[in-house]
Amino acid sequence: MYDVQSKDGKEWFYTDEVKDHFFNPKNLLKTREEAEQCAKQASGIGEEGSPACGDLMKMWIKVKDNKIIECKWQTFGCASAIASTSMFSEMVKGMKIEKALAIKPQDISKELGGLPARKFHCSVLADKALRAAVNDHYKKTNQLDKIKEDKVKIIDKILKITDHDIEEAVLEGVRTFEELQKRTKIGVQDKTCIPEAEQLLRFYLEKYFNKKQ
C-alpha cells in the first residue's frame, strides 16, 4: 500500500487495476431503472454509509444453494469506492455466503494492487453492504438465527467511546494506542477500559492491515 503523497513518486496515485475498475466497473447497475428491475428479483438488498459522509453503497444479491450467484451494486462514492466494490462483486460471485462474508478489505485492496492508505476506508463499505444484503436475505427466507448485526459496544464508559469508534479510527490512520488516545481521548478518564481498548486496537489493525503490534 502506498500513500497519495508518497515517497515512491508514482505519477498516478491509483494503480492501473483501480483505474480499470473505476472506468469499467463490473456488475454495476447503470441506471435507476436497472436498479428497480434488479430489486424485484434480488434475494437480499443491503445499504451502508450515508450521503452526508460522502459514501453510500447499495448492494443487491441473488442467492442459490447458499451461494451468491449474483452481486449487483450502486454507489455514491469516490473512485476507490467504485473500484473496490467492482472488484469485490467479482470476487464474491459463486462463493458460499460464509466465505464471501469472510473477505477482508485488505483482500480487496490486494486484488486491486493496493489502495492509497487514506482511501482504505472506501473498500470497507462493500463488505458491510454485503453483510446487510445477506442479513436481508436471511430475514426474507426466515433464517433469523443466522443474522449477524454489528452490535455496538461501549468501551469507555465515561466518554461513551464504542468499539465502532476504535474501528473508524484505525481505518482513518490510527496505528498506536497513543494515536488512538490522542484522537478519541479514550481511557483518559475511564482508565479501566484501557486493556480492552488496546485489545480492540490490535484486533482491528490485524483485521484491516495484518499488522501485529
Binding site: M57, T75, F76
Partner: peptide, 11 residues
C-alpha cells in the same frame, strides 16, 4: 448522467 445513474442517492 453516468455517475448519477450509478448513484443510489436521488436528492
Amino acid at each position: 448522467k453516468k455517475l448519477r445513474g450509478i448513484s443510489p442517492v436521488n436528492l
